[in-house]
């Protein structure tokens, strides 16, 4: 965040009061929000970091005890479960959102009739809260209420789809619901990217006799690189902080089969009276996000400097 606004012309010695006020105006306007963000975001990040080095349980304690809570965190089977689930959920969620989003965007980009109707339909899930998505999919995937029962009633009695209640497969239902929610949004990002591609390049390729497939593979998709990057960034932080979707869909169950770092953090901090371990897990999550964001910001900023 930059606050310094360089005046384009050197300030004259006899600048009027109004001119001087105008030069400061952006700083004055931005100052409150900057102060609030500094305190409520970065201040509390530091506070959480501090708490993770204490022995806080039900309420914060400020006596430092070193890396104790990190040792406890990494010795919890629940935390290993959460990390494993995040790896499964995160990678599949990002992959399928991008694959489906790109496919939908390419199909919509064929100058088809009714694009104005179809686009909002695909985008609509993004307008729902994760709680609604989770609850709807919970009913839909529940073998006793939703799809399986409907198929049985239609006469297909051997149909079986019980991932939601299976400890091995439940995490994949979270992927399904998450992909349903976010792929339309990814589609919109790719669609914007596709519309930004210069039509002349494609025409030139067509004149050279390139097939549609190779135009997409060799020209269009490589040109969409910035859109891919944005999609990965947006989706990966959504995956790491994903909480309400799991709570609504499976409640972390069956057993702890769908525990994620975010549900782990909440339960240890607020219901299990292990605030220090919860803070340590929050710090680990922050480091996970940072591991993705810092290389991204670095490459973006370096490109801008060029």
């Amino acid at each position: 965040m930059t606050l310094t606004v360089e005046p384009s012309t050197p300030v004259r010695r006899h600048a009027s009061l109004a001119d001087r006020a105008r030069a400061f105006l952006p700083k004055i306007v931005l100052a409150p929000s900057f102060a609030l963000i500094l305190f409520f975001v970065y201040g509390f990040i530091l506070w959480t970091l501090y708490l993770s080095f204490t022995n806080s349980r039900i309420l914060p304690i400020y006596e430092l005890v070193g890396f104790d809570s990190y040792v406890r965190l990494w010795s919890q089977p629940n935390w290993h479960m959460a990390i494993k689930n995040l790896a499964i959920f995160g990678s599949l969620y990002i992959f399928f959102c991008i694959a489906l989003g790109l496919l939908l965007a390419i199909l919509l980009d064929q100058r088809i009739r009714g694009e104005g109707v179809l686009r909002p339909i695909f985008l609509y899930p993004m307008a729902l809260s994760f709680i609604v998505t989770g609850t709807a999919w919970k009913w839909f995937l529940n073998p006793g209420l939703g799809l399986e029962r409907a198929m049985h009633q239609l006469g297909w009695t051997s149909f079986k789809f019980d991932w939601l209640i299976s400890t091995d497969m439940a995490i994949y239902t979270v992927v399904i619901a998450g992909v349903w929610q976010a792929s339309g949004f990814v589609m919109a990002m790719f669609l914007a990217g596709l519309r930004g591609i210069d039509g002349e390049i494609i025409k030139a390729a067509q004149i050279d006799g390139a097939s549609t497939f190779s135009i997409y593979r060799r020209i269009i998709i490589p040109l969409l690189r910035p859109a891919f990057l944005s999609a990965v960034i947006v989706l990966s932080h959504m995956a790491i902080k994903s909480y309400d979707l799991v709570i609504a869909l499976t409640g972390g169950g069956p057993g702890n089969a769908t525990e994620l770092p975010s549900t782990f953090m909440y339960s240890y901090t607020f219901t299990r009276s292990q605030m220090a371990v919860g803070s340590a897990s929050a710090v680990m999550m922050l480091m996970g996000v940072a591991a993705i964001m810092i290389p991204y910001l670095y490459s973006e900023l370096r490109e801008r400097e060029k």
């Binding site: 349980r57 039900i58 089977p77 629940n78 400890t167 169950g253 069956p254 057993g255 702890n256 089969a257 339960s267 219901t271 299990r272 009276s273 292990q274």
Partner: peptide, 28 residues
């Protein structure tokens, strides 16, 4: 207290859902 109670919850619910065997439950 809540921390220990939830530790019981973890093992009991994982065992009942078939995530861990009885041997593992007794060990954990």
């Amino acid at each position: 207290p809540a921390a220990v109670q939830e530790a019981f919850f973890d093992v009991v619910t994982q065992h009942l859902n078939g995530q861990i065997s009885t041997d593992e439950a007794l060990e954990r």
